[in-house]
Amino acid sequence: MITKASTIIELTVRNHPGVMSHITGLFSRRGFNLEGILCAQIGGGRQSRMYLLVKRDGRIPQIIKQLQKLCDVVEIVLREDYDHTLFDRMHELVKRKS
């Protein structure tokens, strides 16, 4: 169960095959926790929107600063106005398909 102890970082990134590695690689090598990811292309495929679910703790400013340094990151917004149950209901994505 994901609760309000988490927060969402909304990223707009340049869309290309390596961009996901750039984001997840940053989290793993700097030891930042990443609780969930939602990602899809926007704007006709030139960009992607990523929602990163992260623990709300003292490391968020550092995470944001490190993300800002990535050349593929176009915009970062810290979102409090999100429905965290979406991450809990991810399985519905597949169920609906069948």
Binding site: G18, S21, H22, G25, R29, K69, L70, C71, D72
Partner: peptide
């Protein structure tokens, strides 16, 4: 090379 140099470059 892209994957290998990802964590050790400013950008690749």
């Amino acid at each position: 090379t892209y994957g290998l140099t990802l964590p050790i470059t400013k950008h690749n």
